[in-house]
Design a binder for these strands. Structure first.
Lengths: 211, 211, 211, 211
DNA sequence: ACATAATCGAGACGGTACGTCCCGTCTTGTG
DNA sequence: CACAAGACGGGACGTACCGTCTCGATTATGT
């Protein structure tokens, strides 16, 4: 997943010869992520990456062994760390989290990358595994963490099903992204509706009798 | 989306010359759907389809104009109509619906096709549009219909947000499929938990105050 | 040396599928000989041949296994059969032969090809061997034949050294071509001078004493 | 043609900095001539020269501007001055000259270099021009000089065509080298036959009538 | 002693061409 | 006509070198 030889080695000894260009490194990663988003993993070509980065193919192959390796590195570059919110209440935290998720899906490269990755993740390819472990799961764990804190604070029943809650909160956002369905609500309105419904629903886990 | 010239034309006049082989038609569609599932739309090739179907490339291109057209036809072939359940209660209907959805995702070709389609749907490609219109939306509408019937029956508040409810019910199933996360619960347990939580949550639409 | 599969097979059965294009064949050979002359064997590239012929690289590699094979075939195409002259006298025949040789060296592609081939012939490469056998030796043999006829006619001593004569006649022409030395004489004047000197010299094979 | 900066400058002031290695100079020239002979000008590479000389590519390009420059220098290194023979007679001198020419063609690097140069000379490339001026023409002039001396001595008619004679003497040797034709005669036998035939032929320049 | 300066090797750089593979199209003869 | 076979022009693959360009290290000299 890492480049063949790390140029930023902390590192007692320098390798002889001309060092690898940092500019080329950046240009390649930028071109790679752009083309991945525009054309998809299968349709993008190394030749295209080289051309857009203004770089020889050799320079790419010298640093990455395969298209997979390159794209994995490129994906890791665009990770934007989401800070765990702390508004004081479970409801507020979850709304912030969901708003942030919708925003990243809507605006950033992350959102463009996600649908292209669905297939990779489902297929369990090397690329998909990395994406799940480095992008998806950290975000899911963050929701879980916030929910656990809610239980500790007594804002949620001790027995509340965290996994279920997590799916109920994130699922709708993902679904909306995948189906490209447009809503007339703002991100915050949508987040608020989801969070309120789910949190209220979680107070009761017994079968729903007559209302 | 239809083949260039329909061989099963009901149709007053027979075309002159040798008629198209119905066996070849089936063999091509079967090969197409297999390869779509195995390799994905981008990676599969018409050449591969022809080879697996034991057919010349010409025979495929004479009937379909493009890979898109072929795959669309092939996808439509595997649609299994889901009957609208009628257990007598909203809760029962929704559970049946979700169990059926999970089952189809888990077992059939439909489930294998879905992740490959996420990207197409999100990108709004011809293929994606067909998939959404012919596969996704009918199922969503079915959930909506059941929910509306619930309102009519008085099992749900008149003001209940159908779109939100639909997303909350379907989202988790989709999310689970995409992330390939395994649960130790049965489809029915999971469906029940989702339905109960969402239905209970929908009774309350005001902001969640302290519990 | 021959194409991988001969398209002009006389021959009982046709191969199935689309036959190979005769136009492409010609275009490739023409491009090959042009580039060989312009840039030399080492510097010319298959990609360049394909480009100039307006043809895919595949089409070339389908018919020839290597650049050598291609160039050999291309060279064979430009062979212009030199008719054995029959002016009635040895002297006239030889002059005609030498005039024709100088003319082909000066004007045709043959003359452009020759210096590029010198190295190949000397090195004994596949290309060089073909060139020697198919172009050089037939011409040498023709001179030999004319000289033998001269002996039969009694125009030359029976013991005359044919090999020596041949070298003495052809050598100066070749040398002139290689060194690009320009003469103020016409081809015919030069041919006549050479032939007269050599023929006269051949009458005497004993060591040259004082004159 | 000369190196960019001559390391063996006789010369008043030494340049500051590390002086260029004389060992590297020799190693590079040796490697260059070897590779030129083995692979030809077009196929040999500066990288190969550097590798064989055990030297960095920079070191070569610092001293010579191009492959041409390097090879020209390397070729000049192998020039062996041929002494003008003086046996007392024209016939003896010419035989010595031709024997020497055949010997150098057969044995030394010069002989290996010659066929590779034919193309360069004919094409009139920089390399070819140097080769003609520094190697070819001096030898031709030497033959001319010997022939002139023959005229002065009265061994040849005053009107004898020196250029023709020169071509007739040298041409066969060159032709033999180029075509790699093997003879069962010794160099001396062959030289003698050529010289005797040509000298005898030169006595008569009128058209050859009936014998 | 020590700064200065041009050398050295190593090796990364943007490129070009390689020969292979497969794409989707086109063009045959046969059924 | 439909069909299989397969040639067509084209494009990308990953490799190998090309000649150029940086590097740190080395090696002389002129203070």
């Amino acid at each position: 997943m890492r480049s063949v030889e790390d140029p930023v080695e902390s590192s007692e000894r320098r390798t002889p010869g001309r060092p690898r260009s940092a500019l080329a490194h950046r240009a390649i990663l930028d071109a790679a992520i752009q083309l991945f988003v525009e054309e998809g993993f299968g349709a993008m070509s190394m030749e295209g990456v080289a051309a857009r980065a203004g770089v020889g193919k050799t320079t790419i192959y010298r640093r990455w062994d395969s298209k997979e390796d390159l794209v994995v590195d490129a994906i890791e570059e665009i990770i934007i760390p989401v800070p765990v919110p702390d508004t004081g209440s479970l409801r507020g935290d979850l709304i912030e989290l969901l708003v942030a998720l919708q925003r990243s899906m809507r605006h950033s490269v992350v959102g463009q990358v996600f649908p292209r990755m669905a297939q990779e993740v489902a297929a369990g390819s090397a690329l998909g595994v990395v994406y799940r472990e480095r992008i998806l799961e950290p975000r899911t764990r963050m929701v879980d963490a916030v929910l656990h804190r809610g239980i500790e604070r007594g804002e949620l029943p001790v027995r509340a099903d965290i996994e279920l809650a997590s799916d109920l909160l994130i699922g709708p956002i993902i679904l909306c992204k995948l189906t490209q369905r447009l809503s007339d609500r703002t991100s915050r309105q949508r987040a608020t509706a989801i969070v309120d419904t789910v949190l209220f629903g979680l107070r009761r886990t017994q079968p729903v009798g007559d209302p």
